[in-house]
Structures are given as C-alpha cells and as structure tokens.
Computed example of a mutant assay.
Amino acid sequence: MQAGSGIQENLQGLLGVTSALVAVFDADDRLQFANESFRSVFFVGADEYPTWEEIFRRNHAAGRGAVIKATSIDAWIASVSSRRGKTRHRSFESDIIGGKWLWVTETVQSNGWMLLVASDITSISSTDRELRIDRDIALKAAQTDELTGISNRRHIFELLHQICQDKDAQPEVHICACLMDIDHFKSINDTWGHQAGDSVLANLARSVRSGIRLKDGFGRVGGEEFLLILKDCSIKSAQKQLIRLMDRIANSSLLEGRPEVTLTMSAGLTDIRTGDTTETIYSRCDKALYEAKAKGRDCICINIHDRISLVRTDLEPETSPRDRKPGVPGRAA
C-alpha cells in the first residue's frame, strides 16, 4: 500500500457507491461491516450489527430477502451452518425475493472472520442457470444428512481430512474431535416410535449446531452418533464446551409434546496431532466413547496418546444443577 495515497478514504468511497454487496462477519458470525448495497438487499439498518442468523430469520419471518426453500427455517439454518465458514472459499448463486439473482463468494481467514462479496447477475443469460442450480442442489444433498439437516458422514469426514492437512501445515494450532452418542436412544424408539426418535435426532442436531461456533464442524456419522470438530480449541477448552453442550441437551425437551422426556449423551474426546488421519482420529474418539459408555454413560472420556481418562460432567462446577442418576423419573433410560 502506498503511503499517503488516501487508500482508506477512497476504499470507503468505492464501497459506498459499488453495486456489489460487501460484508464482513467476525468469528461469531456477527456483522462487523456492510456497505449500503448489502444493507439494502438484506434490510439491515445503518447502525445495526446483527448475526448472520438473525438477518435471515427476521427476513424470512417478514417474507423478504433471500428465497429460502425449506419447510422449516430452523432446518435451513442448521443445514447452511454446516457448510458456511468451513472452507477458505465458497461460491454459489442465491436468489432474492423479487427476482434478483446474486453470485456470492465467501472468503474465510484462519481466525474465522469472513468476507462476503455478492454481485447482481440477474441480467446475465440464464441459459445455464438451471444446470448450475441443479448442481448446487446435488452438492448440498451429497453433504447433508437428510433427517437432521447437518453434515452427513461423508461431509464431516471430508472436513476432518482437511483439518488433518491444516494441522500438518500449522502444528501449533489446537484442534479437537469428539464422538457423541445419545444414551439409551433405543428406548425412545421402543416407547414412542421411530418417528419420535427421528424428531429427537433432528432437534438435538439443531440444538448442538446452534450452540457451537460457525467454524466448528458437526455431523451425523450414523444412527444416534455424531462427530464434533472444535477448531482453535485445547483439550481443556473442549472439555468445558462439551459440558455446556451436554447440560444444554439434558435440560432441554427434544421430543415435541413430551416435556418429561429428557436425554443425556456420552462423549469420546481427543486432540488432533500432526500425522493424524481421519482413521486414527476416529479410532481414538471411538475408544474413548466406548469407555464413557462402560463407565455409566452421561460423561466424557478423553483419549490422549491412547491413555483414556474419565471426566464426570456432574463434577464440573460451571454446569447447571441437575440430577444425573440413571433411571430418574422422566428420563429416557
């Protein structure tokens, strides 16, 4: 940058007059900067700095902004959040209520901050648009768990593979992975039916997804088993975050119409090291999860260098008080 060139002033001026939508979101996905074009299209006031989720929820409720083709805004938010902010670059087409089409590019820094730039492509020939839209829909379907709307097994393992490569390139960065499993899930299906079980899985997935950072990965790997990837997170920090998530789940009603039914989870946690592969990471998590189940469930086991230690979530002072004894009335046992 040339000294004394007035670059800052001119950049501000250009951002004010360009038709391109420009916005910057921080690691918590809260808007930190947006030019007039972005604020106009997405109905954000000049002095407002909402989160990405808040922008889309209120616009959806008002019938404006982006076209959202989903029966549930919660499911749509969970699905998009499973892909948004997970890779350095992402581009896609988006249509706006009223007929406008945008080409959107998201660029993410290692610290989680995101630059969003969108250009109006409405006037460009739409001959190949249907093909591109069909491609985007197919890509989304290939990455999304149909029941829960979060990452499916294939996508979460692709993210884990990328994490391994990032770790090799930046060995000083702390990253953790955790395998989580619903305790006694079979009793839900046996007592209330498989449709109730499906509802529990979907509600739990959305609850966890909304309780973690945008840059973290979360996906369903099969049945009632989920994989969580925590970036820029030490084992100690991961442990605290897991306790908060597990308390959140245990203190929530995840089965509609049955507030007395609550659930707990068991978790197997490990750190990601240089030279790791998806197989070695999953194996350590799986061994720790198996140990957590063997120790009575509703707890976290940590696998460090194949040495497994138990963390009982009810001994953590930061958690909210709740009875964790197995078989208490109202708990799915």
Score class of each variant (00 low, 15 high):
residue 1 M to E: 09
residue 1 M to L: 11
residue 4 G to V: 07
residue 6 G to Q: 09
residue 7 I to T: 14
residue 8 Q to Y: 11
residue 10 N to T: 09
residue 14 L to K: 05
residue 16 G to P: 03
residue 16 G to D: 14
residue 20 A to N: 15
residue 25 F to L: 14
residue 28 D to I: 10
residue 29 D to M: 15
residue 30 R to Q: 11
residue 39 R to S: 05
residue 45 G to E: 09
residue 45 G to N: 05
residue 46 A to T: 12
residue 46 A to S: 14
residue 47 D to Y: 02
residue 49 Y to L: 06
residue 50 P to K: 01
residue 50 P to M: 05
residue 55 I to S: 05
residue 58 R to S: 10
residue 59 N to T: 12
residue 61 A to P: 01
residue 63 G to A: 12
residue 63 G to H: 12
residue 63 G to T: 11
residue 66 A to D: 00
residue 69 K to H: 10
residue 72 S to K: 05
residue 72 S to G: 06
residue 73 I to W: 10
residue 77 I to H: 05
residue 79 S to A: 14
residue 79 S to F: 03
residue 82 S to N: 00
residue 83 R to W: 04
residue 83 R to Y: 11
residue 87 T to P: 06
residue 88 R to M: 11
residue 93 E to K: 06
residue 95 D to Y: 04
residue 101 W to F: 08
residue 102 L to V: 02
residue 104 V to G: 07
residue 105 T to I: 13
residue 106 E to C: 14
residue 108 V to H: 12
residue 110 S to E: 14
residue 111 N to I: 08
residue 116 L to D: 09
residue 119 S to N: 14
residue 121 I to E: 03
residue 123 S to I: 08
residue 127 T to G: 09
residue 129 R to P: 09
residue 131 L to R: 14
residue 136 D to G: 02
residue 141 A to S: 13
residue 142 A to P: 09
residue 142 A to C: 06
residue 143 Q to R: 15
residue 145 D to A: 01
residue 146 E to Q: 14
residue 152 N to R: 01
residue 153 R to T: 03
residue 156 I to Q: 06
residue 157 F to W: 02
residue 158 E to G: 07
residue 164 C to S: 14
residue 166 D to I: 10
residue 166 D to P: 04
residue 166 D to L: 11
residue 168 D to T: 01
residue 171 P to V: 08
residue 173 V to H: 12
residue 177 A to L: 13
residue 182 I to R: 00
residue 186 K to T: 01
residue 187 S to D: 09
residue 189 N to W: 08
residue 191 T to A: 08
residue 192 W to I: 04
residue 194 H to M: 03
residue 195 Q to A: 10
residue 200 V to I: 08
residue 201 L to F: 03
residue 203 N to A: 15
residue 204 L to Q: 09
residue 208 V to N: 01
residue 209 R to W: 07
residue 209 R to A: 07
residue 211 G to A: 14
residue 212 I to N: 00
residue 213 R to N: 08
residue 215 K to C: 13
residue 216 D to Y: 01
residue 219 G to W: 00
residue 220 R to F: 01
residue 226 F to E: 04
residue 228 L to W: 08
residue 230 L to D: 00
residue 232 D to N: 15
residue 234 S to P: 02
residue 234 S to M: 11
residue 237 S to R: 15
residue 242 L to H: 03
residue 244 R to N: 03
residue 246 M to D: 05
residue 247 D to Y: 01
residue 248 R to Y: 03
residue 252 S to W: 00
residue 253 S to Q: 03
residue 257 G to K: 01
residue 258 R to N: 13
residue 261 V to S: 12
residue 262 T to N: 13
residue 263 L to N: 06
residue 264 T to D: 05
residue 268 G to T: 07
residue 269 L to M: 06
residue 279 E to D: 15
residue 280 T to C: 11
residue 281 I to E: 13
residue 282 Y to V: 13
residue 284 R to K: 14
residue 286 D to G: 12
residue 287 K to W: 08
residue 288 A to C: 13
residue 289 L to G: 07
residue 296 G to Y: 12
residue 298 D to W: 02
residue 299 C to W: 00
residue 302 I to C: 15
residue 309 S to I: 11
residue 310 L to D: 00
residue 311 V to D: 07
residue 311 V to M: 09
residue 316 E to M: 09
residue 318 E to S: 15
residue 318 E to N: 08
residue 320 S to Q: 13
residue 322 R to C: 05
residue 323 D to L: 01
residue 323 D to F: 01
residue 325 K to I: 11
residue 326 P to L: 11
residue 328 V to K: 15
residue 329 P to N: 11
residue 331 R to Y: 10
residue 333 A to Q: 14
